[in-house]
Design a binder for these strands. Structure first.
Length: 283
DNA sequence: ATGACGTCCTGCCTGC
DNA sequence: TGCAGGCAGGACGTCA
């Protein structure tokens, strides 16, 4: 499921591929998830040029030259594919069954396309005035970005302390505290920091906050470098899976031995979501 | 205010 | 073997 590293991967690639391109048209086969009135969306994106692509939390923002921006959230199974005359017949596009779930297509004047695939149809897109992007509730309420250079151990602790009675595992998923972390990377970061997900925020020591910050940032940076985690669904804009799943220590490894101490990795419900940890390494 | 749960959606896994 | 039911999951909405 796309979290910060997967969204950053898509943004990095789109920045190289579509900035400067002119949109010819847009079509959706699942208009329900086009959260702006459809006719307006279609009319406003047509003939607009792409000025930039950026990430806000887990949102993708495509800025146009007509003072409007397309905001996209991939949710769990969404991914964006960029197809050209050259790569349109590439194996990953032709053979991947997930390409049977393309619901929204932008076509550029040069004939290339940006295609939004989403098996579970949770993802959405909308059009806003660029100046109003930051006012969108899910963006306005974002906490500091997990990879912001301004985020240090003290600030991490301070942000988390806003929900001090919650568990650290739950607090890490709260986008209003720290933006960008999802279910995969919270488990991985806590494992690397040697902290149990169930620990209350208020119980963490200064020493633990100082371990958690680099654990979190290093995990996210390495995942960006490896173009994210593909746990089934995620694809980059070339239709290729990420590589970070090969380096996961705990996520998705419930019942398997810890790579450090061989203790069986536990999978447990925390709040509503599954969290993975090693009793010994995170004790 | 906070927390618990329902909602969206569909492939996959489990159990009978 | 087949089919029904449950589960997963990001973030918002609703209810207590």
């Amino acid at each position: 499921m796309p979290e910060l590293p997967e969204v950053q991967t898509v943004v990095n690639q789109l920045h190289r591929k579509i900035v400067g391109k002119k949109i010819a048209r847009f079509h959706s086969a699942w208009k329900k998830k086009v959260l702006t009135p459809y006719a307006t969306f279609v009319r406003k994106v047509a003939n607009a040029n792409v000025r930039g692509v950026r990430r806000l939390g887990k949102h993708i923002v495509i800025d146009l030259d007509n003072d409007h921006s397309i905001v996209i959230h991939l949710k769990m199974t969404g991914h964006l594919l960029y197809k050209t005359g050259k790569n349109r017949d590439a194996r990953q596009f032709i053979e991947d069954p997930l390409n049977g779930y393309i619901h929204h297509i932008f076509t550029f004047h040069d004939g290339t396309t940006l295609e939004f695939s989403d098996m579970r149809k949770f993802g959405w897109l909308r059009l806003l005035k660029t100046a109003e992007v930051e006012v969108l509730k899910s963006i306005q309420e974002l906490g500091i970005d997990a990879l912001s250079p301004r985020l240090n151990a003290t600030l991490l602790q301070k942000q988390m302390a806003r929900k001090k009675r919650r568990s650290i595992g739950e607090a890490l998923l709260d986008q209003s505290l720290i933006a960008g972390v999802g279910n995969i990377y919270r488990s991985e970061a806590l494992y690397r920091a040697g902290i149990m997900p169930e620990r209350r925020v208020e119980s963490l020591t200064d020493e633990e906050w100082r371990r958690l910050l680099p654990a979190l940032k290093t995990t996210l940076r390495e995942a960006v470098r490896l173009r994210g985690t593909t746990d089934g669904d995620f694809r980059d804009t070339d239709g290729l899976p990420g590589q970070f799943q090969k380096t996961l220590h705990v996520y998705g490894r419930g019942g398997k031995p810890c790579q450090k101490c061989a203790t069986i990795i536990v999978r447990k419900k925390l709040g509503q979501r599954s969290v993975f940890f090693c009793f010994r390494c995170q004790g």
